[in-house]
Design a protein around this nucleic acid. Sequence first.
DNA 1: TTGTATGCGTTATCAT
DNA 2: ATGATAACGCATACAA
Lengths: 345, 345
Amino acid sequence: MNDQNRGRVPTIHDVARIAGVGIGTVSRVVNNSSGVKPATRQRVQAAIDELRYSPNLIARSMISRSTGAIGIIVPFFTRPFFIEVLQGVAAAIIRTGRELVLYNVETNDQRDRYFRELPGQRKVDGLLVISLSPDDTAVSTFKQAGMPVVLVDAYHPQLTSLVVDNIEGAYQAVKCLITHGHRRIGFINGVTEGNFRFNQANDRLIGLHRAIGEAGLLFEPELVLTAEWSRQGGKQAALQLLTRADRPTAIFAASDVQAIGVLEAARSLHLSVPGDLSLIGYDDIEIAEILELSTVQQPMKHMGELGVQQLIAHIEDFADEESLPELIRLQATLMMRRSVSYVDA
Amino acid sequence: MNDQNRGRVPTIHDVARIAGVGIGTVSRVVNNSSGVKPATRQRVQAAIDELRYSPNLIARSMISRSTGAIGIIVPFFTRPFFIEVLQGVAAAIIRTGRELVLYNVETNDQRDRYFRELPGQRKVDGLLVISLSPDDTAVSTFKQAGMPVVLVDAYHPQLTSLVVDNIEGAYQAVKCLITHGHRRIGFINGVTEGNFRFNQANDRLIGLHRAIGEAGLLFEPELVLTAEWSRQGGKQAALQLLTRADRPTAIFAASDVQAIGVLEAARSLHLSVPGDLSLIGYDDIEIAEILELSTVQQPMKHMGELGVQQLIAHIEDFADEESLPELIRLQATLMMRRSVSYVDA
DNA sequence: TTGTATGCGTTATCAT
DNA sequence: ATGATAACGCATACAA
């Protein structure tokens, strides 16, 4: 192991030279192809071990036209919801021995650039898109490039999409509050950032309307606030709701992160949950259980795993060209915990 | 956009043909090289736009010998500690316009395979290794392949390493408990999984010893338990400690995740924290603040960002060959919150 | 059974 | 200013 070789990675030619064979034979040994005399195979293997050779995957990709990597396009990946989806994604990808390449998007521009350029760059074999809905132009780029794409928590008619019934989820949450005798229910919705989560925010509002309408209650617009998808956002909105003269007896938040902000607001106002205020969040991130927060569970890890599974099926399916896009619907589940109680019990 | 081109990505040759120029010229336009007549440049650009061409990064990598990607080798990436480090990592990487490739390791074999093969595969320009200490063989593989490697929360004399003074952190935690009058202090340490976190677990124990020794207290081995780095692990260990006749009045846990398990155990035994039990965790993951858990803060995001920063410096530094490895020491900080009180106050 | 030549899509070095 | 051509490291078809 002389120092001359510093920084120079051995290639298939080096192995061939050492073993005294042609590069074709080395290639056969490396790829376990048949038709190599055991003795030669052994010589080659010895050379490989000696040089600590491992094949340059970039060069191999040029020929095989596949990289073994899967790209994940995800907005604001540090938020708990996305983190939990990513956990499912990563577990599923790694299980297949592939690599995971993360593309985080924080702006519309970034999203559009990824949609436009990633398909042609060929650095990944497929794209899993989380909570982002590509427009028709983007989809045509995917199709033209033959790049398999699957959507998770987003929808496009021409792409396999995996969606959660959040209208029903929100409906169940609000209905539950109504059943518990609440009549003044505050709703803290999430902002729609660059239309990233347009449906997400909207669906929850629709579910709320449905539950309220069904119960024959009056919809009170001043009890509906829009806040950042953050603790801070939730806290501020809650403060606003809870300092009203006619403060709501219950709050439904569009995400657990915001619900935690509500808890903090309540604490700072010396209101007890659920004594003075009932609360339901959304997502069921891990911390919700610890805080005994009632919430609507989205099967986040499962969404990630299922998305990867679908994507890999597309990648491996050569007849993919015109395989019809599937629409997979998942349920949201109300998780009742300690943060809800009957009003004036 | 005819259907014939489905799945065929346009190459530089297609652009050249359409624009009626040679591929060299196209390459110059794509890379903004000088020496192209404005008129030609325009023609080429038009062809690029028409075909929606974007250069194949794989082919480009063959020549440039760089991929624009950074590989992260991390064990058990779903644990909060690693998630928070990864957040810093991802933010820093994306800020530089590079890609992040995640390599999760759950076994010794996996770790060794990554260390052995990744350097030669050339799919990434550098490796950031989290909480994993490569041995001399691995390090020599890195060096020979000229693959830049930086260690975070791990150490090797020949590699730039970023470590946290966890001995001091643990010392501060235990000393604080002693100052609050506690004499029987339980310690829930983490297991050493395949030596992944050998130092991590050991350092905390050393800090404990130091604080206890300094106070002239007797070290009681039966109050030191080893548990999984999980809520469940922490809970079970705590149950064991807290059901003793002479139960400790305080517990120090090697991680916040385990400390949360302690909280759950206390709750199930109807012991109040900090009334009946004082508790200090380790790491300061986000949930610690929400739970008002006292803990020792590790600058996780900062570690990730700093690691990336160092790695990129190595990647871009051509004289890297023999640039000396740095050892960067970071402080751990005791965060006092509600989970600690004076004993028999 | 094995060696050699071709091509993957780029960039870079030459000519022109 | 621009076009042709040689690498880059590999897999593979084909020749021997």
